[in-house]
Design a protein around this nucleic acid. Structure first.
Lengths: 222, 222
DNA sequence: TAGATTGTTAATCGATTAACAATC
DNA sequence: TAGATTGTTAATCGATTAACAATC
């Protein structure tokens, strides 16, 4: 039924597509009509051939000697990533990070709409953050089920994350975007996407030490 | 001088180490003394052999039939990732996300100490967030240089990110943790670690569609 | 001793990069 | 036509997984 197959698309490609999109927005804003692989490659620091492969997924043909039509490419990415429609999500944990995500207007253009927040803190329950109600956590499961919400966002402290995840699963939520630095135990078939800042930090720190230390010498050799 | 070489450590391994550490904290709290690869493998959803390879980096030997000493492993990870000392960092953009990061106490145990925040909004300048001063952005470069701060955290809107990055580079900052969904253009040798939520979201959404759609059939076949 | 777990080497798999043909 | 860029196939590279030896 659909030409585009799901599994075969490499995750790295998937991660690069939003970045190409962001560049296209910029370049279209500057009046660009045609864009080349080389231009993407330079901006994103990836091989031009890789860019061609990534763009091939979209089914938007380029023209030799000219490049790719910038507008078509933008639309192609939006369609490919499903940004024309949004998935509704519940968020648990209206702390600083949760509030940041609730206030982030740009999710709406990127396929995600957080429609409500859930909390255990009575101080926060009943409030309104960026037009979204903060409700008691006990109501999450029943409401998720009734509203057919499929995505849950976890921004509670690590110690509470597993309990929240259980509630989400109980409510029929299928995918969890987990910002707590903790390994969630969920039934098979439930998708967990970890956004682990400590992992990123480990990579950053290592690259920093490598850049100033041993690896710096290797670089000189070139 | 140092047995541990920098470059050869795979990034995926680096990303898993903090997760093992988190599990060790839990298990040590429950009184565990010895832990097996299989246990990590199950919790993190990775192959046991992979866990052994990851742990091999630490130089903490396991004992056949018994496992690895949990306490030594924890210390080993902390030492390996350099969590015994911290790198000072400046943060630019004291919005919701920036505030969340400034308030996040656990960075201190993970090698990062955000020591000050920078802003252009006069409303926010002069405030104090979790004991850290919010200073005018103009001061960032000079202060970074004077204090030998090597890490910058960007939590400003996408449109301001490049300017902030330029300031950081001007101040001698070597590594940038970029939360703005934008490709930064920096001189060679400056490390940029992108924390792109839209990329993660693209992966999450795709996995969700795949889980309910075509790929579900494939799974049945097993 | 038997058996379970670590440690290591080989095989597989998938993404990236290189080579080159096709095309405007 | 010549030359630049896309598109595609082959080679390389690196991480994961499998096989198996070592050890307590």
């Amino acid at each position: 039924m659909d030409e585009r197959r799901f599994h075969p698309i490499p995750e790295p490609t998937l991660r690069r597509l939003p970045r190409y999109h962001q560049l296209l927005e910029e370049w279209l804003g500057e009046g660009a009509e045609w864009v080349s692989c080389a231009r993407f490659a330079e901006a994103v620091d990836v091989d031009p051939t890789q860019v061609r492969k990534d763009l091939a997924c979209l089914g938007v043909p380029g023209r030799p000697r000219v490049g790719y039509p910038a507008g078509d490419l933008r639309v192609g990415i939006e369609r490919f990533l499903g940004w024309n429609h949004t998935n509704e999500a519940f968020l648990a944990g209206a702390g600083h990070l949760g509030t940041a995500l609730l206030n982030y207007a740009r999710f709406a253009d990127h396929g995600l709409e957080i429609v409500a927040a859930f909390e255990t803190d009575p101080e926060k329950i009943g409030r309104d953050i960026n037009g979204k109600q903060v409700l008691p956590l006990e109501k999450l499961a029943a409401l998720a089920r009734r509203m057919h919400v499929r995505i849950g966002v976890i921004t509670v402290p690590a110690a509470a994350a597993q309990f929240v995840a259980d509630q989400m699963v109980a409510g029929g939520i299928r995918a969890i975007w987990n910002f707590a630095p903790t390994a969630l135990d969920v039934p098979e078939g439930i998708i967990v996407q970890d956004e682990d800042l400590f992992s990123s930090l480990a990579v950053l720190s290592r690259r920093l030490e490598a850049g100033t230390g041993i690896a710096a010498k290797e670089r000189e050799a070139e």
